[in-house]
């Protein structure tokens, strides 16, 4: 298993996409359930949220996956549920991920 960094960014123009109380509630619950699922399976190692989103970056996850393909599948799922554009970056090893983990540990 290796660690991967998933970077979630709002797509340009996303802020102008309308949401509603009902849609927002649905999205929060669906995303929370997915994160819980990751936690339960030990796949979510850490997360970070920028204090003030810059350049569209909204959230980062460090996930465990068996390889690039598995990490990409997690990224695709996150993208589908959150509407983010998700980039996947492999981390060299667990040791290097420790520094990032301290940003926000689930």
């Amino acid at each position: 298993m290796s660690d991967f960094l998933l970077l979630g960014a709002r797509q340009p123009g996303m802020a102008t996409t309308e949401t509603s109380p009902r849609l927002a509630a649905r999205d929060v619950v669906a995303l929370a359930a997915w994160h819980e699922h990751l936690r339960r399976w030990g796949l979510l190692r850490a997360f970070a949220l920028p204090q003030d989103p810059v350049g569209g970056l909204r959230a980062c996850l460090i996930v465990r996956a068996s390889g690039q393909l598995a990490a990409s599948r997690l990224a695709e799922e996150w993208q589908r549920r959150s509407g983010y554009q998700v980039a996947v970056l492999p981390l060299c090893d667990v040791g290097q991920a420790q520094g990032v983990r301290s940003v926000g540990r689930p």
């Binding site: 802020a15 102008t16 999205d27």
Partner: peptide
Amino acid sequence: EDVVQETVLTALDRWPLQGV
């Protein structure tokens, strides 16, 4: 409306990870 929209989006970023 834009401000509220962005506020709700921020909640959507944070609440699923940090909890409501």
